[in-house]
Design a protein around this nucleic acid. Structure first.
Lengths: 352, 352
DNA sequence: CTGTTAGCGCCTTCAG
DNA sequence: CTGAAGGCGCTAACAG
């Protein structure tokens, strides 16, 4: 039952070579004879040798553990699960492994898991900071030369790259789209005003409304829970207004679907008398739903993007310029009624 | 910019002690004087020392890396995301860290990530095996004395512990519950017959129906996509039957919610003329939905359970008896109509 | 209670 | 192309 691990020295002995030779084989060095290489490999297989990265890192200069730390604030939210999947994809195919931890929005836990990850010698870190995280918390990491990239939530002040969603730009795009369809009274539905994301999306809505000369009015901002039920509620209040809106930008997909539910109950096909666009936070992923135009913030894509950015920094040695990448996309999942249109705008922005 | 890492020897020098003393402090040994301990700790903080677990594991006997590998077949599915959260909870509070990888049902990827995890010296592995995984694939792991526990899908033949959901027992429980409410014609709705899970749940349904003397008929098994849309469809077909059923056990929560949607569209309050119970696979987690009785397979709970099992094995040295834990729970999220009832049955089973 | 001496498993010169 | 040393950062025995 091999309570004793087999080491390079064991396989060297068994293959009748020196341990250096074995080491060279391990690293695929071209300095080793083909016949000896195959022989050594065979012995490794036979003895069930497993490479010990811990030992390797110890010797190696720079401690390249090929471990990527991923810290998210709420893995229960499928947005972050998708994000982790995206990260995992590129991380795996680059031959790295992923440490994943969930902070549940606890800043203490965040500190703990990051400390733990450091002790394990992570090569880089991708983090969606818990609420209230200070930029200074990442000072030691970057000082130690460990690349860090922030996702979803930025860390203003910390000199690190981030991948954020362009909430404001997305909202503008969405409102413009509704305007080109002829809508004038466009509401903003769902969400609570105490989050950064809400403010950004609302700001985009407001700016677009003003730029288009449609004007901004508090009356058209209909707050509600950012859930399906909230959407039903919000659309109900919208329809009850004296001068009722004909379209709405919804805070997220749950609200949008709720709005559609509400419209359907009123025997209005979605998009017929009332057009709905929602930010797609993939809260309702996988649900079979009716046609809906969405502003997609692709979490998996964000994860991939973040991982790519991180790997680039890891490979490039240390000093990489701070980069901010943002992305949104206006998509029609299925066209229907007034939603039919030439929409599939992709927008990517980079700032140095 | 500390391009040079600080080591025990540095802090020993700075604190005027030997490195062993520092090591003892690190391990919280009681053999060290309180005054020196505080002094050493202070120096560690000042110099920004970070513990190097890699080096420690190398020296330590038994290679206790305190890394737990977690491999799931589909992290995109929120069931598994929840599972990972559950694992992470107990893993974190036990001072371990979690390697998480997604196989996307690819058996090759699974092999790769597990190999990679072994090289990193994981202390244990929790795996939801990709479809087609052979029990033999885990032979080397267990031979090396690394505890493995399977979740969600078992690995018959491999001598490892598992945490599975009691699909059959849950179905029986659910049908019994409907029967106590007076229902006689109870349908089984949703899902496709080609999965193990479907077979288990259907088997439970069948057995309960027969045991209760209600009889089993293929007519009452209404297959459909395991989605919300599938539920709408299925309930439609059920209502169109000549001798229509008055209740249904649904394959999962999505189907159940779809069924409720369908009933609502027909102006039937759920539970009024037609009672619905669904297996809760948390596909529709977070959605605000109407009252529904569900058979809950709590993924987070399964994760926690699996992690506990694993940690027990890790702490207990090696030879732990193979354990199979299964759990389901019948719950009412919110009572409504005919669903009102004394239901909150928990059922746990262990087999040695 | 503290210091000294050996390595853990691997990778890197540096000579053969 | 291969072998012989040395050391990465830490801990395990022992001595003091």
């Amino acid at each position: 039952m091999s309570d004793k691990r087999v080491t390079v020295i064991d396989i060297a002995k068994a293959a009748g070579v020196s341990k250096s030779t074995v080491s060279l084989v391990l690293q695929g060095s071209p300095l080793v004879n083909e016949s000896t290489r195959t022989k050594v490999s065979a012995v490794m297989r036979d003895l069930g040798y497993v490479y010990n990265r811990g030992a390797a890192n110890l010797r190696q200069t720079g401690s390249k553990t090929r471990i990527i730390g991923v810290v998210v604030n709420d893995l229960t939210n499928s947005f972050f699960a998708e994000l982790a999947v995206g990260v995992d994809m590129v991380v795996q195919s680059a031959g790295f492994v992923q440490f994943l931890s969930n902070t549940s929005e606890s800043i203490d836990r965040q500190r703990e898991v990051i400390a733990s990850m450091r002790e394990h010698g992570i090569s880089g870190l991708i983090v969606s900071p818990a609420r209230g995280t200070a930029a200074a918390d990442f000072k030691p990491l970057v000082a130690a030369g460990i690349p860090v990239v922030a996702v979803v939530r930025g860390l203003p002040g910390a000199r690190i790259s981030s991948v954020l969603s362009a909430n404001m730009e997305g909202a503008i795009e969405a409102v413009r789209h509704l305007a080109t369809l002829g809508h004038k009274r466009i509401a903003f539905m769902g969400g609570f005003a105490n989050t950064e994301v809400f403010r950004e999306r609302l700001a985009g809505y407001r700016q677009a409304m003003e730029d288009l000369g449609l004007g901004f009015s508090e009356d058209l901002v209909i707050a509600s829970a950012p859930s399906r039920a909230g959407g039903v509620d919000a659309v109900g209040r919208a329809m009850a207004m004296p001068d009722r809106p004909t379209a709405a930008l919804c805070f997220n997909d749950a609200v949008a679907f709720g709005a559609c539910d509400g419209l359907r109950a009123r025997r209005l096909e979605p998009g017929e008398d009332f057009a709905v666009i929602g930010f797609d936070d993939v809260i309702e992923a996988g649900t079979a739903v009716p046609a809906l135009t969405t502003v997609a913030v692709d979490p998996q894509g964000m994860g991939r993007r973040a991982a790519q950015l991180l790997l680039k920094q890891i490979n490039a040695g240390k000093p990489e310029p701070e980069t901010i990448v943002t992305a949104v996309r206006l998509v029609v999942r299925e066209s229907c009624g007034a939603h039919r249109g030439p929409v599939d705008v992709e927008q990517m922005r980079k700032k140095a």
